[in-house]
Simulated assay, not measured.
Amino acid sequence: MPAYNADAFIEQSIISVLAQSYTNWQLIVIDDGSTDGTAAIVKQYQKKDNRITYHFQNNQGLGAARNTGFKLVKGQWIAFLDADDLWLENKLQVQMATAINSNADVVFTSGYYLDKANVKPYESLTGNYNGHALYKILLNHNHIAILSVCIKKALADNLGAMDTNLLVFGNEDWDYWLRACKFNAVFIGLKDKLFKYRVHDKGISANTQRMLMGSYYLICKNYDSSLLNNQEQRYQQFKLLTAIPFILKSMFKWSGNKPKNDFAALVFKILAASFPVLPAFSYNLFKSRFNKTAILNNCLTDVGP
């Protein structure tokens, strides 16, 4: 459980873990440099239950906090919960039963959005997937909520640390699932609704521009033409090329050389990955009068040289 200035919600999150019908768990709270009452709340519960571990580190970001948690895990499975979200009481029990009775490397579920007092369904994928098949689906959208996931520690060890690059902002989990897909891990999606994802103004997902940038970064990073047919390759390449103006605009908003170098490197990687379709893209760019939707539609109908 990564936490940064989370005293508004972290107590409810901890209580949702304590309420689990499956009791063989270890809760690792990584305090990522909080300056509010987060530490006091966690330590209060730590005194009452020795299954809770508290670890403080200087602020390094969400991915780095989860990576610290990986190093402290003692069990064979890893589950994720942010400090503002909730698990339903049978969440771990249902997933562990599935894990034990299958060859799954990753088990995930559906759940609910929690927006103040309003609750609405958060639908995910259901069924069994091999990683290479799921890759094509996840490359277009992250359908797997991180608080729903239980991942085999052996797989996490093979995948290594979560990405901590500045550009991945808020998409560390999506990047991790794509890496697991490329590893051809076995995913099982359950129809059970077993979590509540809290929507609020201070949540990372509220920063839509940074999240969008992160999506372009991780798609380019995880692009693997060997897992896509020709039309799928062309679509992803066109999509990345249409992102370049947004990336360049974002680059000039940042101060300091390091972030700007990362933005520039991303543009060059996109151009390299999409080089085979540059003539067709240029043709469609002018034909569609720079309309992004029209460009992507044209790429699917093979319009252009």
Rank of each mutant, 00 (worst) to 15 (best):
F108P: 10
N103I: 10
L62M: 10
T98V: 13
N103C: 07
S34P: 05
L88D: 10
V73P: 05
L86T: 08
D36P: 03
V106M: 11
L92Y: 08
N58L: 14
Q57L: 09
T109G: 07
V107D: 12
N90V: 04
V29Q: 00
D85A: 13
I100M: 12
T38M: 00
Q93C: 12
A64G: 14
D32Q: 12
I41S: 01
L81E: 01
A104W: 13
S34W: 03
F80A: 03
V73Y: 06
Y112I: 01
I100F: 07
K43C: 03
F70A: 05
T38G: 01
N58W: 01
L72N: 05
I30Y: 14
L81D: 01
L81I: 09
L86V: 05
F70D: 02
N103P: 13
A39T: 09
Q44F: 02
V94G: 11
A97P: 10
Q44C: 03
D49F: 15
A83T: 09
K48R: 12
Q46V: 07
E89L: 03
I100Y: 09
K71E: 15
D82P: 00
D49P: 01
N103V: 10
W87V: 00
N101Y: 14
I30H: 12
F70L: 12
N101P: 09
A64V: 12
S102N: 08
Q93D: 13
A99N: 09
T35N: 15
L81M: 02
I30M: 11
I28A: 03
W77H: 02
G61C: 09
Q57F: 02
H55D: 03
Q95A: 09
D36I: 00
G61L: 05
G111I: 00
Q60H: 13
L72V: 02
T68H: 11
N101H: 15
N59T: 14
K71Y: 03
Q95F: 08
F70W: 09
I28R: 04
M96S: 12
V29S: 00
E89M: 04
V107Y: 10
R66F: 02
W87A: 05
S34F: 04
Q44W: 01
N90K: 15
K91G: 13
D32F: 00
K48P: 06
N58V: 15
V107N: 06
K47W: 01
Q57P: 09
K48Y: 10
Q44Y: 06
Y112D: 11
E89V: 01
D82Q: 04
V29G: 04
G69Y: 04
G69V: 07
I30F: 13
I78T: 10
I30W: 13
F70V: 03
H55C: 04
I78Y: 02
T38K: 02
Q46S: 10
G61H: 06
N59P: 08
Q44N: 11
Y54V: 07
F70K: 07
N90E: 04
G61E: 02
R51A: 09
T35D: 12
K47L: 04
Q95H: 10
S102C: 08
A83V: 10
S102F: 08
A97M: 08
N50Q: 13
M96K: 11
Y45H: 15
Q95W: 06
D36S: 05
K91W: 06
W87N: 04
G61I: 04
T35C: 14
